[in-house]
Design a binder for these strands. Structure first.
Lengths: 332, 332
DNA sequence: CTGAAAGCGCTTACAG
DNA sequence: CTGAAAGCGCTTACAG
């Protein structure tokens, strides 16, 4: 392994000059060319540890995720990776496995590793999160959730909920079930529902009941069973695709046809939703793009640039086959 | 931030003594206790960069994956993470996005970062992979694939194929389609099929045709269409769950019922396979456990211990509803 | 068991 | 624009 000394020697300059070249300082054209050539010849790559030891910073962006086995997470991660790679930053992923304790730990751990910035995919932001972020003095961007004290990139959950509500109402549904998640999750549990309720209010005169499920498919199957015991509505609007898939399973177990027996919708546009039968009407979010945007923003923050407190990523309804048209009008 | 000097001073010893304590060298009980206390008091954490700069190694295990949005990958990653965390190692994930070029780059890149060991989830191992591994002189474990020159943790694909073949044959199927993948992928494309063919040979007298698909669901839909054009068999054995889901979609598009019109099986036991209707008969692999095992083995290798050249992780058939019983015998 | 010293490969003021 | 020197926070022989 060559060191900066080898390069300096071969180029006939001091190592500080090589260092200056490496870091974009002012170097005469002649020396620049010489150093450039020698570096290429020797395939010299600076030692990251030595760099970080002196400079006390790295070109690593840390990303803390709650789980790896989620479509939204993996898409977001890929978006982040795309953008970071193009900008010569490295991505360090830490998985908390839904453990809030580890989330906090990782913030400190990443700070210790001198990551330049932190991307946080957290379901909730507690006071301890905020303290950790303050303690570490690292730029942070929250993805998918929002908090007054932090920068964030969020999905437009309110609009998403609203559009979905409007959609099923326009299809003539009035006996409605909304199968949501805990309100601890502001984005999915609160905002998505808020938008949905706004649509209900606009239309008025709806019979809507609200239920709660866990995020996992099998939890949704159970939740759907309870819901069906209560009554079978004409439509079940599910807060996520996973939940919608669970509902579809529960329905098929009871021999309730979709959409003729009950319509079902999801949020997320996971890959399978197109494959299941009937194909699921759902809301597409731009996870990958949101990831890219977050990466862009964190780099800007790292460089001391101004960044909007909250960036909103859009959504788009994907109409497929799981919603029945109850208006009596044939569709086109 | 406290440094080793601060600790040494506070403890009234030399920093080399503190370092020795930190690295498990011999220290008298008295000094040990004193140092321990001071470290705790000051919440001292050694600077990783300084450590790595001198020691020229880290406690990082690099893992190179082809993609993030795959059940098998994310499960494996979680297994690796589990094990590594328990052993005080850190996991660094690099995603190649199916780009072979980046796979090679990352091997060098990780070496540059002085990871102690490398876990490789590659679909194929080329000469350039081997060269990179040799160049870097890092212990490597291949996951999911096998190669004479490398240590590996693999799934028992031959047995899996065999058991699946046996299963459908015992259910009375004789008009068989096998929808596989490219033979470039030794594990899935070759071994899984080999096992399957062995089962066919044992039974003899089967009409089996072999087709090929890509790994993605929509590619499988297309492949299934071609297959159906050819003829509709009594069963389609798909090399992966994703492919099976694509086949199910294609069948439902043609109004072919499953399993009465055609039976379908997969491999992998992805979470959705239990949720789709009908629930898919598939082969469960122990991705998470394989990940743990690989992590265990790489640590052993790093520590210079002996490790079996190849460790085999098991499989188990999961019988659900997608295979029709053609024997005329009622089940149980 | 313990300490003084050298050195890992860089970067960063400071002179010139 | 360029170089000499100090120093980042550790570890590692080497003496004692």
């Amino acid at each position: 392994m060559k060191t900066i000394i080898d390069i300096a020697r071969a180029a006939g300059v001091a190592k500080s000059t090589v260092s200056r070249y490496l870091n974009g300082g002012s170097v005469s054209d002649a020396t620049r060319e010489k150093i450039e050539r020698i570096i290429k010849q020797n395939q010299y790559v600076p030692n990251t540890f030595a760099q970080s030891l002196k400079a006390k910073r790295t070109s690593i962006i840390g990303t803390i995720v709650p789980r790896l086995d989620s479509y939204a997470v993996s898409q977001t991660l890929m978006g982040i990776d795309d953008e970071l790679r193009g900008r010569q930053y490295q991505l360090l992923i830490a998985n908390t496995n839904q453990d809030l304790e580890r989330e906090i730990e990782f913030i400190y751990e990443m700070a210790r590793q001198k990551v330049s910035g932190l991307l946080l995919l957290a379901a909730q932001v507690t006071e301890r999160h905020l303290k950790a972020v303050r303690d570490c003095k690292i730029p942070v961007i929250l993805i998918g959730q929002q908090h007054a004290d932090l920068h964030s990139v969020i999905h437009d959950d309110v609009t998403a909920g609203y559009l979905m509500g409007k959609h099923i109402l326009e299809k003539g549904h009035r006996h409605i079930a909304y199968l949501g998640v805990t309100e601890q999750d502001i984005a999915v549990g609160v905002r998505r529902k808020q938008g949905f309720q706004r649509a209900l209010r606009e239309y008025g005169n709806c019979d809507a009941r609200f239920y709660t499920s866990g995020f996992r498919m099998n939890e949704a199957v159970t939740a759907a069973d309870l819901l069906f015991e209560d009554r079978v509505p004409t439509v079940i609007v599910c807060a996520t695709d996973n939940i919608a898939l669970g509902v579809m399973k529960a329905a098929s177990l009871r021999h309730i046809l979709i959409p003729s027996g009950v319509s079902v919708t999801g949020f997320g546009d996971y890959e399978v939703t197109e494959i299941v039968h009937p194909a699921l009407t759902t809301m597409r979010f731009y996870y990958r793009e949101a990831g890219q945007l977050a990466a862009e923003n964190i780099i800007a923050l790292v460089n001391g640039e101004e960044v909007a407190k909250v960036s909103v990523s859009g959504c788009e309804i994907i109409q497929r086959e799981s919603v029945d048209n109850l208006t009596g009008l044939s569709i086109q």
